[in-house]
Design a protein around this nucleic acid. Structure first.
Length: 664
DNA sequence: ATAGTGGTAGTTTTT
DNA sequence: CTACCACTAT
């Protein structure tokens, strides 16, 4: 008798997917992708396809029937979130856009406005960026007359860093000062006083700084069960990218948001932790399984990005770390050019080398936007930018000063802020001081008068007259005209600019450039219907490009990338140049105080090196006089000195009449 | 008393 | 390029 084999039943519970996950991701990635419930920790080395894993998991969750609105994706920038959602959307169709995504700060902002009343705030509160909060601190410091003392009181940005460190580590200020700012320990009393005053000021004026967004959100979740339950139910699946760079308040927020279900997947790489100045600690990632007991841990170690010679360099850099990390990268791309280390005589030679090499690479077919110049600090590229300008090489710069941080843009924004939040006396102060004959004293008098007895927006009644009276009346007319209903944000900015332009021309010699910036700002507002949304976004998700990149034709998309290493996180290029690999620059002078900081510099170098796919150039100028330390810097970065000659090729720069570069 | 100005020194990394 | 201080002008 013939036997006929009956196949196993296809289990009903196994849904059929449109995407063939087995084919699209490797077995380890698949494991991460297909876990649906419970806490998961993915340790993902550089270039190991962690974004891919996240994107496929998003798609898979949606395919199994999880409503997109119930998924939250927390990333470092909104751009990263949007990119992942876009990719997931392409695979499975449109509904992915309903997945919520963004930074901790932007999610906190959304819910703090929704539940503002629960923690004693109005939904229209103003968010302070770093410069704003420094301004407030400065104002209060002057009022306490702390800067008139004989002894040296810390500067405003130092104070703000102290406060922020205390918030992000959730430690008392005294402890932070004792450990990291011991030389100011004598001022502890005044600093504590100032800290209290600062808190009170923010409460009275409906202000929150970056840290408040996190801490107030955490408090909201802790103290208000109904809010916590709402939020936890809404986000039944939470994913967090770059988990090694989250700090204590952030990990608490994750824990609280997930309290109903514990469906949390975090992805990170302990050897890429580069934000300890913001309170992040790479050991936190190891704490995750303690916070969520049933955690499954998955390690992604195969690198799909770089060639073996580049990985050899990267692995060596990280192997020399004091503390051992959890993995070692390998790749199947065995062959590739050796990374090149190049010493230049001075900074300008370094710049000229890069410009020339970039043009050569372009000739060979590498598009400009597949080449990046990475630096430790944004100002390290100043000389290079001049050289690129001379050679007509278009570029974008990421990191460093942003255009929303420039004085003229802040001035205009301050006028908008008082419409949205009339109690924001920091912005009032800023715009009043722009009026002629109004300085700190008069500004303070006016603000006190406004808040004590009168409607803040009715400025023109200010009883005291002076040379400034005309100016006050004009400001009042402006506030009335922009507060009218039915105006778009763009209209409002237009009115402000008309009022502000004469002031601007008076204040700056380079006003034509600044007027262009303001026009650019007006264009950006075209996307916004709500003033409040615009004001939050400007602080939380500012256009990442620095000033210099904004102006030259943005339509031209083939541009060389200049970026700080911090801003290069998560990105990759065919060719990467790491510049200023010099003791004192990279590692930075500031890192010589402690081992921990030096180790972070090392991880920074690791991050930089692992951005490269094919070509890696590490360059440094020698014999540079550093005004800051008073030393001549001439030692190549320790991270480069450690690399043996089998790992890298050394080049020397020589000049001949044609300025050609020869292999040494 | 308060506003405005000019000179000098110090400049990391980001939400 | 900005912060801070000292000085001058009103």
């Amino acid at each position: 008798m013939k036997k006929y084999l009956l196949k196993d039943l296809v289990p009903l519970s196994k849904p059929s997917f449109r995407i063939d996950y087995e084919k699209e991701v490797n077995p380890t990635q698949l494991e991460a992708v297909s876990i649906q419930d419970g806490p998961v920790l993915v340790i993902a080395g550089a270039g190991s396809g962690k974004t891919r894993a996240l994107v496929y998991r998003l798609a898979r969750l949606v395919e199994t029937g999880v409503p997109p609105a119930n998924i939250l994706l927390l990333t470092f920038t909104r751009k990263a979130a949007q990119e992942m959602l876009r990719r997931a959307g392409i695979m499975i169709g449109s509904q992915c856009e309903r997945i919520q995504g963004g930074t901790f700060h932007s999610v906190a902002n959304t819910f703090l406005r929704k539940y503002a009343h629960l923690i004693g705030y109005e939904p229209g509160f103003t968010i302070l960026d770093r410069a704003d909060s420094e301004d407030v601190i400065n104002l209060l410091r002057t009022q306490l007359m702390l800067n008139e003392k004989q002894r040296r009181f810390p500067r405003k940005n130092t104070i703000s860093q102290m406060f922020s460190k205390a918030n992000n580590l959730m430690e008392p200020l005294s402890q932070v000062i004792e450990r990291e700012y011991f030389h100011f320990y004598n001022d502890l009393k005044d600093l504590l006083n100032l800290q209290n005053l600062y808190k009170r000021y923010k409460g009275l004026n409906q202000l929150m700084d970056y840290d408040d967004l996190l801490l107030n959100f955490k408090t909201l979740l802790e103290d208000h069960l109904e809010a916590r339950a709402d939020i936890s139910q809404q986000f039944r699946y939470i994913m967090v990218d770059e988990y090694q760079d989250t700090n204590l308040p952030q990990s608490e927020i994750v824990r609280l948001m997930a309290f109903k279900h514990n469906n949390v997947m975090v992805v990170g790489d302990d050897s890429q932790s580069i934000y300890s100045f913001r309170g992040a600690n790479f050991r936190n990632i190891m704490e995750f399984p303690n916070q969520f007991p049933e955690t499954r841990i998955i390690k992604l170690e195969e690198n799909y990005r770089s060639t073996q010679p580049i990985l050899n360099v990267a692995n060596t850099i990280i192997e020399n770390a004091r503390e051992k990390y959890t993995k070692n990268l390998f790749t199947r791309k065995i062959k590739g050019p050796f990374p090149i280390v190049l010493a230049a005589e001075n900074e300008n030679y370094q710049s000229r080398f890069i410009a020339q090499k970039v043009l050569e690479l372009r000739e060979e077919g590498v598009p400009l936007n597949d080449i990046a110049i990475l630096c430790r600090a944004a100002f390290h590229t100043f000389d290079l930018e001049i050289e690129l300008g001379r050679c007509n090489i278009p570029y974008v710069k990421y990191g460093g000063f942003k255009f929303v941080e420039t004085a003229h843009v802040k001035d205009v924004l301050a006028h908008l802020r008082i419409i949205n939040n009339p109690r924001d006396s920091m912005s009032w102060n800023r715009i009043l001081m722009l009026i002629e004959k109004i300085g700190p004293r008069t500004s303070r008098n006016i603000i006190e008068w406004m808040f004590n007895n009168h409607n803040p927006l009715n400025l023109s009644n200010y009883p005291k007259k002076g040379k400034f009276t005309d100016g006050i009346i004009r400001l009042h007319e402006l506030t009335v005209s922009i507060a009218k209903n039915g105006l778009t944000v763009t209209d409002q900015i237009g009115l402000i600019c008309r009022y502000y332009e004469p002031i601007l021309k008076n204040k700056y010699d380079d006003y034509p450039k600044r007027i262009k910036d303001l026009e650019h700002l007006q264009v950006i507002t075209g996307r916004y219907q709500q003033l409040e949304r615009f004001l939050s976004d400007v602080v939380l998700e500012p256009p990442n490009e620095s000033i210099s990149g904004v102006l030259p034709s943005p339509s031209d998309d083939e541009r060389l990338v200049l970026s700080t290493i911090h801003s290069a996180k998560g990105l990759e290029w065919n060719t990467v140049f790491i510049i200023w690999a010099l003791e004192g620059k990279f590692p930075s002078n500031y890192a010589f105080n402690s081992d921990e900081e030096m180790e972070e510099e090392r991880r920074l170098m690791y991050v930089a090196a692992t951005r490269a796919k094919e070509n890696l150039f590490i360059t440094y100028p020698i014999n540079i006089y550093d005004q800051l330390s008073g030393y001549v810097l001439s030692k190549p970065s320790r991270f480069i000195e450690e690399l043996s000659s089998e790992l890298v090729e050394s080049w020397n720069l020589m000049e001949n009449r044609e300025n050609q570069i020869f292999n040494y």
